[in-house]
Design a protein around this nucleic acid. Structure first.
Lengths: 137, 137
DNA sequence: CAAGCAATAGTAACGATTACGATTTATATT
DNA sequence: AATATAAATCGTAATCGTTACTATTGCTTG
């Protein structure tokens, strides 16, 4: 995923081109880690001092639905990151301090021996948490 | 985990015996599934119409710290269930409608081939979500 | 360049959780 | 049994993250 592809995706789905969206996408493209809405606001407030919550949350939600962003919830807060280049289904090792991630190649669902047939399975979550080398020091 | 063991654990840690705590624990003992604070309030309001948020959240938090309850967060809401009889580390298949669980015997951390050494790993989460047979019909 | 509609700002509302001062209650001590 | 004291609770307010609303702005297309 990159900014241009993302803007094309927006256009293709009837969304409009705005500077805020470009800059928002550029931010995720630069950072490549999980960001909260608050962090987004902080990062963009230099150029857009009055950036509205509505704008931030609505766009993050839109981007997530279009698979431009990957979404998770850490410690009661929604976090978003630019969709990984790895197209296949994957999981993450996540730094709880800065949101930096590392991809985990295996999916635990492949090795389940427990019988799941008495539930209609709709999804799963596997995340490893920690502190990255930069944040630990 | 059962109510008596839990009350003993409380005593042993300097907490007091109250009817509310007993009934709260009895609720979890009866239900054996993930409950939200709101569900707890609803279930107990017959006997304790004015049960305070403070009381509910503080006790849930205390119980969780003493490992009387297992805690997770589903769809932005904290959920608690009586600690499973299985002492060993385990994971859950969870019904998103009623909180009913089924234990998963394997832990994905055992089969990780990805190198984790550039992070100081502090924890992980593996949950399978779905709808149980009762809720699906 | 004007019409139409999406996007946004500013702000209010919301739901879950936490926090607070005043009061009540469990427990240990006398 | 009466009392002291410290914990537990109530009633309510504050907080935090998120969503929703209305008026206004600004993309896009003909």
């Amino acid at each position: 995923m990159d900014v241009l592809t993302a803007m094309d995706l927006l256009k293709k789905n009837g969304f409009k081109y705005t500077d805020k969206r470009r800059d928002l996408l550029q931010l995720f493209s630069d950072e490549k880690r999980y960001l909260s809405a608050k962090e987004v606001q902080d990062s963009l407030k230099e150029n857009y001092p009055g950036l509205s919550f509505d704008t931030i949350y609505r766009n993050l939600s839109t981007f997530s639905e279009l698979d431009i962003l990957e979404e998770t919830e850490l410690e009661g807060e929604k976090k978003f990151r630019f969709t990984c280049p790895t197209k296949e289904h994957h999981h993450h090792l996540i730094c709880l301090k800065c949101g930096k991630t590392k991809e985990i190649n295996a999916c635990p669902m492949e090795n389940i021996t427990t019988d799941l047939s008495d539930f209609q399975v709709t999804g799963h979550k596997f995340e490893i948490y920690g502190v990255c080398q930069v944040c630990v020091s």
